[in-house]
Design a protein around this nucleic acid. Structure first.
Lengths: 222, 222
DNA sequence: GTATGTGAACTATTTCACAGCT
DNA sequence: AGCTGTGAAATAGTTCACATAC
């Protein structure tokens, strides 16, 4: 058993590499070395090689990586050739913006339904999507083969929505509510906490002298 | 010099603790132990104590932490007693949603101006904010004492906007563009990459068997 | 000569475990 | 007895450095 644990940060960086490779491919550049690629995305060359190394050997010693080949390999690994159905729960400010957010479609994610608990919101339309009553969720998940649920409800309701998603069989949850969700082991939760992202700034603004004491995140500079 | 480096993840968790303490305070609970608090936010008790330990000693041996006292201490540390002015750059889909997103105000962040490079967008109003031409940015940053810039422009324009923000004196940037920004050491960048957050799901959906091989993020379960 | 792939070294972060306080 | 605060141990993640391949 020589299976290595793969850091989640590696997977996250794989998407960064893929994006950069797509750019390079458009420019008709053929090959790139780990150090050139690393430089473009502010990462160490060894980091690039190690990340790729978890999934196989893609390079040619002495000359680097074939851009189109590596791009295709990463697309395969990351499932970019597939599309997934998404449900948005919560049609308030954030939720309604997400329903029509075009960035999702660009990445193989189709918002196919949306729900809200508030009767006043039911029946409203955003883009081509009509808001359904929250009670319809379990049925819709099965019928529409929803793989990903996006939680955009107030913090106090988030856990309940998560429970309902999990019970209906959804295994991936993107949580915009500023709260910690409890879910079974097999369910993957990503948190996007807009407030928290902004809040951490307030710490830095209040403690400018301390900023040197804080370690940089995922991809610090050299 | 006994100054310890503080992990950025610690600061992030401090906000989680603070939120939980606010809830507890409302319920008129007086004290809490590190293990109880940890359990509520899915973290190890030692983690809670170590995080707090970077900033001082807040607990009472044998009985735990006074909720209101700890809450006040964290608010001070995290700068929650202050407010900051924010500029949004990019008034497209995402930008315009952010301009009126009420979550920011709840955390002491006031969106006071917004900009766009597109002449068609200039003069449009979202909430009480009128979109200004991008060229006005440097002047506005100084006049309105903007501390935080939110980048909600396409990836290809993001670096240019960041340069302009930095040159104008902004030291905190929240970047929604899916690209790696190069900024001077003293500037703090937080990335909120919605696409990436969703993209990582596609990896898990394609490789369900592998999910056990991937380490959990910041706050794994016990 | 140049650049990969990968153990080994290093650095960062989390968890353990226990002395000491209330 | 119960719980904090904190060194020490364990684990995770990054960077170095070099043998090996083209």
């Amino acid at each position: 058993m020589s299976i290595k644990k793969i850091p989640e940060s590696t997977i996250s960086r794989l998407f960064v590499y893929l994006r950069e490779l797509s750019e390079l491919s458009k420019l008709n550049i053929r090959t790139i070395s780990s150090s050139e690629l690393g430089e473009r995305v502010n990462l160490n060359d060894a980091q690039v090689r190690k990340d790729l190394g978890y999934f196989g050997q893609f390079g040619i010693s002495g000359s680097g990586y074939d851009i189109n080949e590596l791009k295709a390999a990463l697309e395969k690994i990351l499932g970019k050739d597939k599309t997934w159905n998404v449900a948005v729960i919560g049609a308030g400010h954030l939720g309604s913006a997400l329903i029509t957010y075009p960035g999702f479609q660009q990445h193989g994610l189709n918002v196919v339904t949306a729900f809200d608990a508030d009767v006043k919101k039911i029946g409203k339309r955003f883009g081509g999507i009509t808001i359904q009553p929250a009670g319809e969720l379990p049925k819709a998940v099965k019928e529409k083969k929803i793989a990903i649920g996006i939680i955009a409800v107030p913090a106090k309701d988030a856990q309940e929505v998560a429970n309902s998603l999990v019970k209906s069989g959804v295994e991936c949850i993107l949580n915009f509510a500023p709260t910690v969700l409890s879910v079974p082991e097999n369910v993957k939760v990503n948190n996007v906490d807009l407030s928290r992202a902004l809040e951490t700034f307030s710490y830095f603004l209040v403690n400018p002298a301390l900023s040197g004491r804080v370690n940089k995140a995922v991809s610090g500079k050299k």
